[in-house]
Design a protein around this nucleic acid. Structure first.
Lengths: 258, 258
DNA sequence: GACCTTAGCGGCTGC
DNA sequence: GCAGCCGTTAAGGTC
């Protein structure tokens, strides 16, 4: 572990170099500007920012607000620090795609490096896939006669969340976790059209399943002869009223399925 | 500024509380688990992680790899730390939407808090809007007879990147910065259809402008009678061969336009 | 506030 | 590797 408060830039250079070499975590709070050139070109004028270099050698530069970094480089970059002309220049390179990030560091309030071991994965409930699975397992959500056939059926034009039938008709269900918008309708439309064409049939219904839908999207849906099915968001099952026991059970079931 | 290496949890509590109260930056490297409940539900088992609380009170939890946080809360959350049963519990709350994040901290390697002033914004060149502007200003990119009429024209169904005409026909251009896919075709299709309907006309062409296009997307584009126009990515202008002077000029022009 | 879109999207999955 | 798409998407703009 290494740490300096208000260090000289040559000390910073050493700490960053050690951290990068050892694949440790590096955290630096300081004043610097950033130039990026790669998938776009960006310029970030000098100011107080937080620099993070992770063991996997991805680089994050954070402003004082916002969830997303204002600049970043993805994992596997090569990182080089060098002192010149009263500033510390950190150059970060990636190939494929070729990208370059340059930090011009003028002043550092604090810099820190330490081992940072990797830890377990996240488990999430309430995704679109959970929603599709719920429909698959409780087909009456869609209609009395709905009989699900497959889940996340792969096609060349994307995958169909739930495919099923209703008496003699095929039914394609597209799920959206929250309010459905135009793009959801377009997606459904694409699947229905391609499905009809691929099988040379015409009796294919389209259903958009979501907790709600925007006005425009509903209009478009109707224009195309599809229907909207109001479905509780995937979170519904695990809402406030749900007891902890149920949650654990759900989590466990979910886990065993993956 | 406050800092502790391998602190006791009660010290951590104090530092976090001070940092949050003063709207400072808080950085903590330690061993903890995270539970999130809000737009979804997630469970993150105990492990070594990096916690960041920003002055705007957004909260980031990072694993040792990856650009994105593994858990987070958006700005404006309320944050409360309390010691109980040999662990430090940090509860983060947001309303609208109602979300809750709970950290169970078992061990801390380092914790740090410091003022973190906000700094300037990022300037980016090479966006889709830049691409549309280039076409608007250099209409021959689309065709000899293309006459642009408007840029980013707003409609109820999304905005049209470039609208123009070719002799007696209207032309709607949808730009994509990189390889265009199915959704770009669908977008174009939507704009063309709605435009036709809104004006009660039929002579509307659709052009998808991008550096390249996927096979499926091209097929769909052709099926719908639209055309593909290969256009250099917005980065082209500012590629390797471009001298620094030109870049500065471009940056400056861009600036004066915004 | 509703709605739509982009993003240096990131990251995952299936082929 | 390409292709398509979800995401606790985030963030920004317009109506």
């Amino acid at each position: 572990m290494m740490l300096r408060i208000a260090p000289e830039l040559n000390e910073v250079k050493d700490i960053v170099s050690v951290g990068v070499r050892n694949k440790w975590l590096v955290v630096l709070l300081g004043v610097f500007g950033v130039n990026y050139k790669g998938r776009a070109v960006s310029e970030l004028s000098c100011g107080e920012r937080l620099l993070i270099i992770k063991p996997d050698r991805c680089v994050l530069i954070h402003n004082s607000g916002g969830v997303n970094p204002i600049n970043w480089m993805r994992e596997g970059s090569s990182i080089n620090a060098k002192l010149n002309d009263e500033v510390l220049k950190i150059k970060v390179l990636n190939i494929n795609p070729r990208e370059e990030l340059v930090l011009i560091i003028k002043k550092v309030s604090a810099v820190f490096t330490n081992d940072f071991s990797s830890a377990g994965e996240l488990r999430v409930i309430g995704s679109e896939a959970d929603m599709a699975r719920r429909i698959y397992e409780n087909p009456s959500i869609i209609s009395k006669n709905f009989r699900p056939v497959s889940l996340e059926e792969q096609t060349k034009y994307g995958f169909i969340d739930v495919l099923g039938c209703e008496e003699k008709d095929y039914v394609i269900v597209e799920c959206k976790r929250y309010k459905a918008g135009l793009s959801g309708v377009q997606q459904l439309r694409r699947y229905v059209e391609k499905f009809k064409k691929a099988r040379g049939i015409n009796n294919v219904k389209g259903v958009l399943a979501a907790p709600s839908i925007t006005r425009n999207a509903l209009k478009m849906l109707n224009d195309w002869g599809f229907s909207f099915k109001r479905v509780e968001p995937p979170m519904h099952l695990i809402g406030e009223r749900m007891v902890q026991e149920k949650l654990s059970k759900f989590l466990h079931e979910n886990e065993t399925k993956n």
